[in-house]
Design a binder for these strands. Structure first.
Lengths: 341, 341
DNA sequence: TGTTAGCACTCGAAAGGGTGGAGTGCTAAC
DNA sequence: GTTAGCACTCCACCCTTTCGAGTGCTAACA
């Protein structure tokens, strides 16, 4: 049996209708809904074929048909090159560049959730392979030193280091020079033991301060390592009856709240190197067990300097893929553009 | 009619039983459940009285009784001086003092949620009236200056300030001196226009940098102003059937996710100056509309330096007040003790 | 050979009806 | 003041019926 043009049209009609209503769709509906001018009986025959081919299923005998995961997949693939739609509101929010990046990301997540009526997540850019740009020790008082590390992409980290002995201005100056000379332009991975040893040696009697700074540096990076994820609109899933039953809703919201499991999704998305940067997980395709009744669409954005993050949208399988994909494309483009210059 | 000892005993029995089961409790149950040795008929008479007094209600004729808000209130008040219970696990977590404070708070919220099976929230300490402790400008490159502000309680804020002209080392030193001399020890409120004007005057040709720094300072504070709140265990509410219906659950979780409305609760709790620092909101007493089917217990903690925050627990009206209150007391004591020294 | 009308059939959702149990209020007896 | 007993109420549960939406199949038609 071959999937001819008419079958495809009917399949699309079924999916679109189901996306709207969430109810199984019957042959009579399609007969009226499309401009094919076919009777319901004919549609029934075709639907029977489509079911045999695995694109649609019946929830039970004598119910209408709903798309299977395979059907969605076909639909999504055939629709991937979609219209570009402007979303002015998003632009405005993102353009407030002076916002701190994390607040901006939260804003994007929230806006996206409000716009799409799905749950959203966004991961802060990972700074893997990021280089130290600037480093400064200052004396706060006799017992405490403030260490500031700026990495590329203007990621700033502070640590307060307690010291036993008071350091003179001169010593601080020397240490600053030493640290900057040795560490600037290095990635975290490049700061190895031999480098540290050589710095310690040059630091002379202030070895312990040096190692404290290095520790602080390592700590700063480590904090960033379990990458941060912001979510929004978790309660949107209550809008879709097929996800709103207690057990499922609880699982999904819990996953979004905990964020831990989302890292898998982020990593999966980041490692993907398709041309569009958009990935669609339908039902069982998702790497997150608790979301197997959902579909997830992810997009990666790139702020330059190797700072890449992921935006994700979680909704029912009958989500409006068309709109979601184009919205995501839009947003990632905005992000890319803005920070690259 | 007077609320004698026997009535009180029966009321407590009803409440305790309802807390456990979540089902309306009947006279026969109480007759067996308590050590009063009274027949169900007698209990019925007493229950009838208790209902007339407004402490218990019937969901419908010929059902058992459940406590009214007034009943809970009596119970909670009579129980406020409770046992002190050790919770070793909490101690350990909190004692990892070197954690950044926000991570610590997140940890507390999470642990508390896991421990109590309710939803939890914790507000980061407000730094109202907090003083500037240390201030430093450093040159990152020719066009950018890094401003670091440390406030009391070691709250650190960074801002990157773009400058049009390159500033010499000497100028930077001067500016640092100027800023520190004028601003250290001041609260944000004390930094007024005349102070700024006088500083600008002394800064001479670098007026614009000064005002940029002031702006950055103001910005740093503003960010902190809409105080940060962390929540955890929102999905715990699914464990209580009376809250688990879609509409209610969605409202509650949404409120927890949005956090905006929680500030009311925090402010309410912070403004309360009872001796224990513990407040219990039962049903309609809560300032948050969407949580009128819940009870909320809040406690304030005090890290010294005027840094006070709020911990809250959100659960069904039939929450285990006893356990919750003592757990909260415990935690706030730990927090208080630890940071005060 | 593809399309259509018609018909019997299936199944779930919603509505109705009966039953049992848990619980109450009341009364009379102790 | 306490208790046993009884009539009564009401919900939860189960079963049945009904209704409608939808299907598959067959026969007729172009």
């Amino acid at each position: 049996m071959t999937l001819d043009d008419r079958k495809l049209k009917i399949l699309h009609a079924i999916i679109r209708n189901y996306l709207e209503t969430g109810e199984p769709v019957g042959s009579r509906t399609i007969s009226k809904y499309t401009d094919l001018n076919l009777s319901s009986a004919t549609i029934r025959n075709e639907m029977s074929d489509l079911e045999e081919m695995g694109f649609i299923v019946q929830p039970h005998t004598s119910a209408g048909r709903i798309p299977s995961d395979k059907g969605y997949r076909l639909y999504v693939d055939s629709m991937m090159e979609t219209r570009e739609k402007e979303i002015e509101e998003l632009k405005e929010v993102i353009l407030q560049k002076e916002e701190k990046i994390d607040r901006m990301l939260k804003g994007v997540a929230k806006l996206l959730a409000a716009n799409t009526n799905y749950a959203t997540m966004i991961s802060a850019p990972a700074i893997q392979g990021n280089r130290v740009k600037f480093l400064q020790l200052s004396r706060m008082d006799d017992n405490q030193i403030l260490a500031v590390v700026v990495a590329e992409g203007n990621v700033i980290k502070n640590n307060i280091i307690p010291v036993s002995e008071k350091l003179s201005d001169e010593t601080l100056l020397k240490l600053n020079l030493l640290l900057n000379t040795h560490l600037c332009g290095k990635t975290i991975e490049e700061i190895n033991l031999s480098l540290i040893a050589s710095m310690k040696q040059q630091a002379g009697i202030h070895q312990d301060v040096v190692s404290d700074v290095i520790d602080a540096l390592a700590e700063s990076i480590k904090v960033e390592e379990d990458l941060q994820i912001y979510t929004s609109g978790a309660t949107n899933i209550f809008k879709y009856p097929e996800l709103a039953d207690n057990r499922k809703a609880s699982d999904i919201i819990h996953t979004l709240e905990e964020k831990q499991q989302l890292t898998e999704l982020v990593n999966d998305a980041l490692s993907d190197e398709s041309d569009t940067g958009i990935q669609v997980y339908i039902g069982d395709e998702t790497p997150i067990q608790s979301m197997k009744d959902c579909s997830i669409v992810t997009a990666t954005y790139d702020l330059g300097d190797g700072m890449r993050g992921t935006i994700g949208i979680v909704g029912p399988k009958r989500m409006d893929y068309d709109k979601v994909v184009s919205t995501l494309k839009n947003i990632t483009h905005q992000l890319d553009d803005m920070y690259k210059k």
